[in-house]
């Protein structure tokens, strides 16, 4: 019986060595070590042996089985490894082929810059208000200290709505396309109680069109109404904006100017972020770039909007979105903002 065991052992060792796939190896295992396998057959006959024989043979049988098990396991892991390797080799793909790309939409610069501004001013407590584009002259002009005969109505080339009413030359419908987002200032002051800290982004319309002007462009206006507000607060607010938007090294300066709804009025310039004031074509060599208009809110504006002055005071500022987008993103022609050429838009995906 011992001979049979040894014989089977040799036979099984050979079979394990010869197996080339994990399936054939498994068959070997089943044939020799399985429930119905050769060794099980031998072990079943053990009952017929004498106790001494049973002891020696049993011991041997166990040794042989353990050894076969371990041979099997090491063979199996070798085979599995090489099988996995050959599968990996077979599954090799050309990863230089294009992937299944998901399309990514891009920002429109006007929308992006508006968002950037609202985020920056939002961080110091400003909140957004919106207003209608077809506006009444009262909100666009009169309430902003621009009376019907005010010379500065000439400054605003206004689009008038055709309401079908026949009028004399030089007289127009009271309904217009807003020439700035400042009417939102009046509307907010009329409906909300101070302190107010508001910005109003959106489309505005002026009837001029040339290489640097579009008849429909975008603005953000901001204003603060509170007790103890000063022009220093205006300058600080604009300085914060300019540093956040253009870069931490940028400075602002105010220059006296005139807007009927503020007194004092000021243009505000930022130091040229492109050339760092060395002089370039963007700043026309001056080192400064005109950004927008600003000032302390005119007492007459408070009067029309029903705000108690001088208990409350305030400042306001406004700027053109396209204008600052041109400075920050280097857009070379304003047509780019309305053509919506996908090759242009796709440059602003990130």
């Amino acid at each position: 019986m011992l001979d049979r065991i040894n014989g089977l052992f040799e036979e099984a060792k050979l079979a394990i060595a010869k197996a080339t796939t994990s399936e054939s190896l498994y068959e070997v295992k089943v044939r020799y070590l399985g429930k119905q396998g050769s060794f099980s057959g031998i072990l079943k006959e053990m009952g017929k042996l004498t106790p001494d024989d049973r002891k020696t043979i049993g011991k041997r049988a166990n040794e042989v089985r353990d050894e076969l098990e371990s041979l099997y396991l090491s063979k199996e892991s070798g085979l599995k490894r090489s099988e996995l390797n050959s599968r990996l080799e077979k599954e090799r793909l050309d990863i230089t082929l294009p992937g299944e790309k998901r399309m990514v939409g891009s920002d429109h610069l006007v929308v992006r810059v508006t968002r950037e501004l609202c985020e920056i001013f939002g961080r110091i407590g400003f909140s957004v208000r919106l207003g209608p584009h077809i506006e009444k002259d009262f909100f666009n002009f009169d309430a902003l200290n621009i009376g019907p005969d005010h010379a500065s109505r000439d400054m605003q080339d206004t689009f008038y709505i055709d309401d079908g009413v026949e009028r004399k030359t030089g007289e127009f419908s009271p309904w217009i396309l807003r020439t700035h987002t400042s009417p939102v200032q009046i509307r907010s002051m009329m409906t909300e109680k101070p302190p107010l800290r508001i910005m109003s982004p959106g489309g505005v319309y002026r009837s001029d069109s040339d290489v640097s002007h579009s008849p429909h462009f975008h603005q953000v206006e901001g204003f603060v109404v509170d007790e103890n507000v000063s022009m220093a607060d205006l300058k600080g607010t604009l300085g914060f904006f300019a540093r956040e938007f253009f870069g931490s090294e940028v400075k602002v300066r105010l220059r006296p100017s005139f807007f009927p709804f503020v007194e004092p009025g000021a243009e505000f310039d930022a130091s040229c972020p492109l050339c760092k004031q060395k002089g370039c074509s963007m700043c026309k060599g001056s080192g400064w770039i005109e950004i927008g208009g600003s000032g302390m809110i005119h007492p007459n504006v408070f009067k029309s909007a029903g705000i108690e002055y001088p208990k409350y005071n305030g400042f306001a500022f406004g700027m053109g979105i396209e204008r600052i987008a041109i400075v920050k993103y280097g857009v070379t022609h304003i047509g780019a903002f309305t053509e919506n050429d996908t090759r242009f838009l796709e440059q602003f995906r990130s």
Binding site: S127, V128, E192, P195, N228, A232, D233, G236, G239, A266
Partner: peptide, 18 residues
């Protein structure tokens, strides 16, 4: 105008939502 200092106005009440 260059003599005006820069300050940030104090927030005196809760900011409102957009």
């Amino acid at each position: 105008y260059h003599n005006i200092p820069e300050t940030i106005p104090a927030v005196t009440k809760d900011p409102t939502p957009h």
